[in-house]
Amino acid sequence: MNFFEAVMQYGFLQKALVTSIMVGVICGVIGCFIILRGMALMGDAISHAVLPGVALSYLFGVNFFFGAVLTGILTAIGIGYISQNSKIKNDSSIGIMFTSAFALGIILITILKSSTDLYDILFGNVLAVRPSDMWMTFGIGILVLAAVYIFYKELLVSSFDPTMSQSYGLPNKLIHYFLMTLLTMVTVASLQTVGIVLVVAMLITPASTAYLLSDRLWKMLFIAAGCGALSAVLGLYISFRYNLASGATIVLVATVLFITAFMFSPKQGVVWRSLKSRKQKSAVNY
C-alpha cells in the first residue's frame, strides 16, 4: 500500500499528517523570531524546560499544556534573572537553568509514569496522536499565528532595533516574555511530533533555511513555514515508507533542505559564491 492510500484509509495517519504540518508551520514562524533575536539556545532551553511541567500536570491530573507553559515561562524568567543580576553570561545561565529543569523533569516522570512515556515525550510519537491532541495543536497554531499577525509590527521593530523600540516606549521585556510564552506553546504542540529533544531543530533549521533565501521578514516567515510543513510531509512519508522514527526523519529532511539552500541559495549559496570568485580571479589573472 502506498503512502497516499494509507493516509486515505487510516485515521491515525491523517491525524499525524495534519498535526505535523501544523507543527512545521508554527515552528517555522516562531523560529524566525528566535534566530533573528539570536536566541537559538533559548529555544533549546525552553523546549527542555517544559518536561517537569508535563510531569506535574500528570500528577495533578490537568492537561499537560498548563504545566508545560508554567515551567517553560518560569525557566525563561529564571534565565533572565540570573544573567541580569550576576556576571554569569546569558548562555551559561541558559545552560544551568534548562538542564536542571530537564533533570527534575526526568526524575518526576520516572516516578510518576513509565519509561515508555518518557521516551515518547523525548522523541515524539506522531502516530499515537489522539484527536484531542490534534485539536490542541490546531488551537495553539491558530493562537500563535494570530499573535504574530497582530503584533507583527512590534515583533519586527523590537527584533531589529530594540533600542529604538525601547526609546519610543515599547515594553521590550514584556515582548520578550510574550515571545517566550509563544515559544513554550509551540514546544508543547510539537511534543508528540518530534519530541522535546528535537523541537529545537524544527525551530531553527527551517527558519535558517528561510533566512538564507529571503531579504524581507514577511517572506522569511512564509518560507520558514513552508519549509517546516514540507519537512513534516516528506519526513512522515519517508518514515512510513522505510519504517524509520518519524520525528528524527522529519528533522533530517529539514536539514537536507537547509543544506540545499546553503549550497545553492541565489545570493548566499556557497556554490555560486565560489564560482563567482573563481571567475573574478581568472579575470584578474588573465
Partner: peptide
C-alpha cells in the same frame, strides 16, 4: 514625551543582515 523624541543609535549596534528593506 517619548513620541516626541527620535533616537538614532550607533551604526555598530544594528544587525545589517536583518531581512528588512
Amino acid at each position: 514625551v517619548r513620541k516626541q523624541i527620535a533616537y538614532v543609535p550607533q551604526r555598530s549596534n544594528i544587525d545589517w543582515d536583518f531581512p528588512i528593506s
